[in-house]
Structure formats: C-alpha cells, structure tokens
C-alpha cells in the first residue's frame, strides 16, 4: 500500500502540493487527474521517493520511501520525460534495468517487444515519441515491480496501442498483484482502466473515489414540477449550477441515487431526469472550469 500523509512539497517559495493525503490500496490502479501544473508529477515523484517532502511523509508498505533503496527495488517510475542511455537500443536498456531490478524477466521483454513491433537493436533515439513510450512501458513491465508509477501514460500512443497497454496493465494486476498509479489527461482511458480516481487541484486532492462510486454520486438532473419551481424547493439537495425556468429546474446533484430520489419525492415532481455524470464531467465539475466566450476573438 502507498500512504501519502499530509505531504507538502515546495519549490523554493512556490507550494506545489499542500497537506495532501492519499491512500492507494494494493493491487489497484489509481488514476490521477488534474490541470496542467496541478501537481500530478510532483505527487508521483514524491511518492516514488525522488523528492523529499517538506512536511508529511510517504510510506510504502509501512516504510518511508524517500531515498530508500530497498523499497525502490520494487518500484518503477516511468516519467513524462523518458531517459535512455545515449546510443542505446532496447537490449542495452534492458541490461541497464536488469542490473537494478532483481526480478527482471527477459521473456516479458521479448514478448512485449514483439507485441509492440519494435526493433530491439535499433537506436531508441530514432524511435518516435510514441515508440519511445512503448519502450519505456516494456522496460517497466519487464522489471516486474510491485509498484508501478506512470506519468502521462498514454502520451503519444495511438488508439490501438492504448488498448494494448490497457489490457496489459489489467493483466499485470490480476496476475502479479502490482499496484499502479497513473497520471493522464485522457479521461476516457482512465474510465476503462482505473478502479480509483483522484482529482488534484489547488495543491490538494479534491476528489478521491472509486470509479464505481462516480456513477453513483453525481447526476445531471432535470426536474419539472406542477407549479412554478422555487429555490426553496431544492434547498435540501446537495447541488450546484441550479437553473430555474418556470416549472423546469436543472442542476448537478452530488448525492447518492437513493437519497436523491427520496429528496425529490418530497417536492412531487411531474418528471425527473437523472443522468450519471461521466468522469470527464465530474472532472470539469470539480475543477470548476469557466466558460469562456471566444466570440469575435479571431475577427
């Protein structure tokens, strides 16, 4: 298990994450989303023990991860900027990582290289961005880590490869009980991959829940009453973005379906429409994204 307890990380005077707490259970895939610059990479690097937290601590299997070589032998980090030795090919990089990861498996490397159709003797510098990321995934999985941290997992990957990667990760977890933490902007992929989501904004985790719960807790609602709708009618419901137009009211409800149904029943609606928010909608909702008016900008 990865436990992040009240971690604050600063860059000079700038606070990247503040008093952040998080728990990632074993054998789970945890998806981390947030704006550019929200602190995702900082959180990952602190979780892998590269950065020392200014406050708080990160425990992996109960031990402080910072500069802990024993724990890190079972952790693999694929950053957004991937490093390869100069003039190296996949075989060279395999030798590099094999020396640091006792559980390295060459068969996995061979098989995955075939799956991704990469030439293992070609210089990696000649690979495209997507191919380099595939190489990094091959090396990560061949190391057979207990904890796998991936920053911008799907960056540069085409849809076919994304599907392959998704299936690989699911298979890895089911076979080896690996714990995966992945950051990405590609919300649709996360929905199909992760079992837990965390949204990072304003230096902290603002939303942390399982994928299943997302569909159960947030609804886009449209309610039609017999008489004209009033504000007081909806005061008992935990909602946002309420718009009333005559008898019709629309809002975003943050309630479980059962409780929401009970509360709506009290106002005797003529019609209720409840649509669970998608992950993307939840993200946009939680991040309080503004609506921009671009009309006339390019005249």
């Amino acid at each position: 298990m990865i436990e992040i307890k009240n971690v604050t990380k600063k860059y000079g005077d700038f606070i990247a994450i503040e008093n952040l707490s998080l728990k990632i259970e074993e054998s789970s895939i945890y998806g981390l989303v947030g704006y550019n610059g929200a602190g995702k990479t900082t959180l990952l690097k602190t979780a892998i023990g590269m950065f020392k937290a200014n406050n708080g601590k990160v425990l992996v299997d109960g031990e402080n991860v910072y500069d802990n070589e024993e724990i890190r032998k079972s952790m693999f980090f694929v950053p957004d900027e991937i490093y390869f030795l100069p003039q190296a090919n996949i075989l060279d990089m395999s030798k590099f990582y094999k020396g640091f990861y006792p559980k390295w498996n060459d068969n996995i490397r061979k098989k995955l290289t075939e799956v991704f159709r990469l030439d293992e003797k070609e210089h990696i510098a000649k690979f495209s961005k997507g191919m380099q990321r595939q190489t990094a995934i091959i090396l990560a999985l061949s190391s057979k880590p207990k904890y796998l941290l991936l920053d911008e997992l799907f960056d540069g990957l085409d849809p076919v490869i994304r599907r392959v990667v998704r299936e690989l990760l699911i298979e890895v977890i089911s076979e080896t009980k690996t714990t995966v933490m992945v950051s990405t902007h590609n919300l649709r992929e996360l929905e199909n991959l992760c079992d837990h989501i965390g949204i990072i904004n304003n230096k902290n985790i603002i939303y942390d829940n399982s994928i299943d719960e997302i569909g159960n807790n947030k609804f886009r609602c449209k309610v039609i009453l017999e008489n004209k709708s009033k504000l007081e009618d909806y005061s008992s419901i935990n909602l946002r973005k309420l718009k009333i137009s005559g008898k019709i009211a629309t809002f975003i409800a943050s309630e479980s379906e059962e409780i929401l149904d009970k509360k709506l029943a009290l106002i005797n609606p003529v019609l209720v429409e409840k649509i669970p928010l998608s992950l993307e909608e939840v993200l946009l909702e939680e991040m309080e994204v503004e609506d921009y008016d671009f009309k006339g900008l390019f005249n």
């Binding site: 690097k45 590269m50 079972s74 693999f76 900027e81 490093y83």
Partner: peptide, 8 residues
C-alpha cells in the same frame, strides 16, 4: 528521473 528513482 531515472537515477533517483531506481533501487540505489
């Protein structure tokens, strides 16, 4: 990123 995240 690599050298400070591996098992050394």
């Amino acid at each position: 990123n690599t050298y400070f995240s591996i098992g050394v």
